Amino acid sequence: MTTFDDRERAEEAKFSHDAEMQFRIQARRNRLLGEWAAERMNLLPAEREAYAKAVVQADFEEAGDEDVIRKLLGDLTSAGVETDEAEVRAALENKLVEARRALMG
C-alpha cells in the first residue's frame, strides 16, 4: 500500500506543479501581450505597466483567451491602431512561446 500511496502523492504533486506552471506561463504571456499592445498604442512607460496588468486581469473574466483577445482588439481599435483578430492571435501565440521559454529555461 505504501508504494501506491507514494505514487499517488507523486502524481498529485506533478499535477499541481504542472497546473501552477501553466498559470504562470499564461500570466507572463498576457503581460507580454499587454506590453506589445501598449507599445503599439504609444502609451507612456507608466501607462504601459498599468495596461499590461489590466490585460493580465482581463484573463480572469472567462475561461479561454477570448476575453483577452476582445480587450486587446477593442483597446487597439479605440486607440486608432489598425489591427485585426488574426494579428492579435498571432501576437498571442508568439508571446506564449516567449513566456514558455522564459519560465521553463
Rank of each mutant, 00 (worst) to 15 (best):
Gln26Ile: 05
Asp75Gly: 07
Phe23Leu: 13
Leu76Ser: 09
Ala27Lys: 10
Glu47Ala: 06
Val88Asn: 01
Glu61Asp: 14
Ala37Pro: 04
Lys53Ala: 10
Ala86Val: 10
Ala46Cys: 05
Lys71Met: 14
Glu35Arg: 14
Phe23Thr: 13
Met41Arg: 12
Gln57Met: 14
Glu66Gly: 14
Gly74Tyr: 02
Ala38Arg: 05
Phe60Ser: 14
Val88Tyr: 01
Leu44Tyr: 10
Phe60Trp: 09
Asp67Ile: 08
Glu85Asn: 07
Pro45Gln: 08
Arg40Gly: 07
Gly64Arg: 08
Arg40Pro: 07
Arg29His: 02
Trp36Val: 02
Gly64Glu: 02
Thr77Ser: 08
Arg29Lys: 03
Thr77Arg: 10
Glu62Ala: 14
Gly80Lys: 07
Asn30Lys: 06
Glu39Arg: 13
Asp75Val: 01
Arg24Ile: 12
Trp36Tyr: 03
Ala86Pro: 07
Leu43His: 14
Thr77Leu: 01
Ala37Gln: 04
Ala46Leu: 07
Asp84Gly: 13
Val88Phe: 06
Gln26Ala: 11
Lys53Asp: 09
Lys71Leu: 13
Glu82Trp: 12
Leu44Arg: 13
Arg29Leu: 00
Val55Met: 03
Ala50Trp: 12
Arg31Phe: 09
Gln26Arg: 15
Met41Thr: 09
Glu35Ile: 15
Arg31Pro: 01
Ala79Gly: 08
Arg70Cys: 06
Gly64Cys: 04
Gly80Gln: 03
Glu82Asp: 15
Glu39Cys: 06
Val81His: 12
Glu35Pro: 11
Met41Lys: 12
Ser78Val: 00
Val56Tyr: 03
Leu33Ala: 02
Asn30His: 08
Val55Leu: 05
Ala38Gly: 12
Pro45Ile: 01
Ser78Asp: 09
Ala79Glu: 07
Ala86Gly: 08
Ala46Tyr: 14
Trp36Gln: 02
Leu43Glu: 11
Glu35Trp: 14
Met41Gly: 10
Glu62His: 15
Asp75Phe: 00
Val88Gln: 00
Glu87Ile: 15
Glu39Ser: 12
Ala52Ser: 04
Leu73Phe: 05
Pro45Met: 00
Arg48Leu: 03
Asn30Arg: 10
Glu85Lys: 15
Glu35Met: 15
Glu85Cys: 08
Val56His: 01
Leu73Pro: 05
Arg24Ser: 14
Glu47Gly: 02
Leu76Thr: 07
Asp65Leu: 07
Lys71Ala: 08
Leu43Tyr: 13
Leu73Thr: 02
Arg24Gly: 07
Asp67His: 15
Leu76Ala: 09
Ala54Leu: 10
